[in-house]
C-alpha cells in the first residue's frame, strides 16, 4: 500500500565493524535515502526498525547486539534469509554551507549514509562519539569520503575524552557550520539540538521510538501527534524542542507515556 511490501532477502555478507558492532549487507535495489529505515524481520524472533547504513543496491544495517533481535541477527551468516519491509520514513536533506554530522553510538549507522553524498556539496565535519574505542565504527568511511573526522569517547580511549556534545559546541563555536544533522541517544540529541539552537544553526535529528507497524497506523511511535515512522524519523530542531515529548517521554509497547 505504502509500497514497502515484505521481501525475503538473502544475507550477502556479515561484517564485524568493531569488537561490538556488526553490519549485515543484503541486495535490494529499492531506492533509498540517508536517514530512511527498514523493518527487519528475523524469522522466529521479532521484527524491528533499523536505519540503513548503506543506501545503494547493496543495503546495509549496522547494530550492536544488545536485545534479543539484534543478538539473533549477529548470529546469522551469509546465505541466511531475513525479511525486510520499507523503505520507510523521511531522510536527511542538505540545506547548504558547511554541515556538521553528529553520530552517537549506533546512531552513527544512520548518519553515516549522509556523509558520503553531502561531501559532494561542500565541507562535511563528522563528529562520532561512543562509550569507548571498541564501540566506534565507520571512521574509515568518513575519511575516505573526504569529510573531516572528530572523535570522542566517554572513557577517553580515543579522541576527546567526554561527550560528543563537547565537540559539537567547539565546532559550532567556530562559526562556520550552517547545518547540523544528528542521530544517537535521545539525551545526546536533545543536548545537540539545544547547542545548535544557541548558535542559531538549523538542525535535523533522527529520533528513535518503539514501533509495531512502521507504516503510520499503530500509534506506538507517536511524538506529540507526529509519527516517527512516517513523519520522521528525521525532525527539525524547532519542532522537537517545542514538543512535549522530545527528550522527555515515549510510549511503551502498551502505549503508556513513560520517561525516555
Amino acid at each position: 500500500m505504502q509500497g514497502g511490501n515484505l521481501r525475503i532477502v538473502e544475507i550477502a555478507e556479515v561484517v564485524k565493524e568493531s569488537p561490538s558492532i556488526w553490519t549485515i549487507r543484503y541486495r535490494d535495489p529499492s531506492p533509498s535515502k540517508p536517514g530512511q529505515f527498514v523493518m527487519v524481520w528475523v524469522p522466529g524472533v521479532d521484527e524491528v526498525p533499523m536505519s540503513l547504513s548503506y543506501t545503494g543496491d547493496e543495503k546495509g544495517i549496522t547494530f550492536r547486539p544488545i536485545g534479543e533481535t539484534t543478538r539473533a541477527l549477529s548470529e546469522l551468516s551469509a546465505g541466511d534469509r531475513i525479511g525486510v519491509r520499507g523503505i520507510y520514513g523521511n531522510s536527511f536533506t542538505r540545506t547548504g554551507g558547511e554541515v556538521l554530522v553528529v553520530g552517537g553510538g549506533t546512531g552513527i549507522a544512520s548518519v553515516i549514509a549522509a556523509v558520503e553524498p553531502f561531501v559532494s556539496d561542500g565541507k562535511v565535519h563528522a563528529a562520532l562519539g561512543a562509550r569507548s574505542r571498541e564501540e566506534l565504527f565507520f571512521e574509515d568511511r568518513v575519511i575516505s569520503a573526504g569529510a573531516e573526522l572528530h572523535i570522542s569517547t566517554d572513557d577517553g580511549s580515543k579522541g576527546h575524552k567526554g561527550f560528543i556534545t563537547d565537540v559539537v559546541r567547539r565546532l559550532l563555536g567556530s562559526g562556520w557550520i550552517a547545518q547540523v544533522i544528528a542521530c544517537g541517544p535521545e539525551k545526546m540529541l536533545y543536548n545537540t539540538a539545544l547547542i545548535a539552537r544557541e548558535f542559531g544553526v538549523p538542525g535535523q535529528y533522527s529520533v528513535e521510538r518503539y514501533m509495531k507497524c512502521g507504516i503510520g497506523v499503530c500509534d506506538a511511535c507517536s511524538l506529540d501527534g507526529r509519527l516517527v515512522c512516517r513523519d520522521g524519523p528525521v525532525f527539525d530542531g524547532d519542532f522537537l524542542l517545542g514538543s512535549e515529548d522530545f527528550g522527555r517521554f515515549r510510549l511503551s509497547p502498551n502505549g503508556t507515556r513513560i520517561p525516555v
Binding site: 515484505l6 523493518m39 519491509r85 509495531k212 499503530c218 509497547p253
Partner: peptide, 13 residues
C-alpha cells in the same frame, strides 16, 4: 495494560 504481540504484527499488500 497489554503489550500486544511481537512483530511482525502487520503485513501489507
Amino acid at each position: 495494560p497489554r503489550d500486544g504481540y511481537r512483530n511482525p504484527t502487520v503485513y501489507e499488500f
